[in-house]
């Protein structure tokens, strides 16, 4: 196991047959892969499931353990539900462990960012905080919280967390994290699992909602507060985000209350204004100067009309 990558390459139509529980799955397509294995969309008896397979059996055991614990906790759905855990022989006769879970159908938060409005960002964050609070009460933190692991379910529009590789018992070292969402990386705290660790990552997710954020650029000097100050799109949330980055919320519920407070007071027009801002920002980069000027003057008119309407209300 010394220098292997734990991902397992499978192709559409491949069959995965469990040696213990004897269930057979058909691979449909890759959903994603990373440092701990590969996740595929698969089917069994006409229904779709997500199947995670890894060359490192400990990954499968650890993650299915977490999902099993979540299953026992009734109430809010934490993570996808666990359906099966097994081993399977793959083409050349190697045996790998895998687990099967509910397929959460929808788009990830990162796929939504291009069209996200402030009000909606507030609602999503609020829902996430509710789920995180449940998780924290159970004695765990999510750990690897990032837009790729947050899915907005297509049917219900519910916010769901997937990929439990980072889920860690409170008080232990975070099991799996992603650099930009890690409190330790930004030197704003330890890597020990406490509820505030998740709130920090969530704050970074919120900054990411500003398409012009400079997180990646700032990694040189590691000043995330500067990045926040420059992220104008999320201005109404700036003080909540700052508190979360500095670990100043008592718990997830306290942050949720502040998010809800701001969301409720957002002007109705914010969505439109944001689209306009995004358009302007895009204009600066993509279109030549003459066009930018004409677009921005158009937008200027648009904004003043909006302003008049708001005044009249």
């Amino acid at each position: 196991m010394s220098s292997i990558h734990p991902t397992v390459s499978l192709y559409k139509g491949d069959r995965i047959q469990g040696v213990w529980n004897h269930k057979q799955y058909r691979i449909e397509r890759l959903l994603g892969e990373g440092a701990r294995g590969s996740t595929y969309l698969a089917s069994i008896n006409q229904s779709l499931v997500a199947l995670k397979i890894s060359k490192d059996p400990a990954v499968i055991t650890a993650e299915s353990n977490v999902l099993r614990k979540f299953r026992k906790a009734q109430g809010v759905k934490l993570g996808p539900s666990l359906l099966d855990v097994d081993d399977s022989y793959i083409r050349q006769g190697e045996k790998y462990s895998f687990y099967v879970m509910e397929y959460v159908q929808g788009r990830t938060l990162s796929e939504h960012f291009s069209s996200i409005g402030l009000k909606w960002l507030g609602q999503i964050t609020s829902e996430l905080l509710k789920a995180l609070h449940q998780l924290h009460l159970l004695g765990f933190v999510f750990g690897d919280l990032k837009p790729d692991n947050i899915i907005i379910e297509q049917q219900t529009k519910q916010v769901r967390l997937v990929d439990v590789g980072g889920v860690t018992q409170i008080g232990r070292g975070i099991r799996e994290y992603t650099t930009f969402y890690d409190r330790g990386y930004w030197r704003l705290g330890s890597r020990k699992a406490d509820p505030k660790y998740d709130l920090f990552s969530l704050a970074i997710c919120m900054i990411q909602a500003d398409p012009s954020n400079r997180l990646k650029v700032a990694s040189q000097n590691r000043d995330v507060l500067k990045v926040l100050a420059a992220s104008q799109m999320v201005t109404p949330f700036q003080s909540v985000i700052k508190k979360a980055l500095l670990g100043k919320h008592a718990n997830a519920l306290a942050m949720k209350r502040e998010i809800d407070y701001v969301t409720k007071r957002l002007p109705v027009a914010t969505q439109a204004q944001n689209n306009v801002k995004t358009l302007l920002r895009k204009g600066k980069g993509d279109i030549d100067r003459a066009e930018v000027i004409s677009i921005s003057s158009l937008v200027g008119i648009h904004l003043s009309v909006l302003y008049l309407i708001l005044q009249a209300l």
Binding site: W20, A58, T61, R68, V85, D87
Partner: peptide, 15 residues
């Protein structure tokens, strides 16, 4: 070894 145990038992060893 760990892998020759059924998946459920493996979970306990993992813990």
């Amino acid at each position: 070894d760990e892998e020759s145990l059924p998946p459920e038992t493996r979970g306990e060893v993992q813990e």
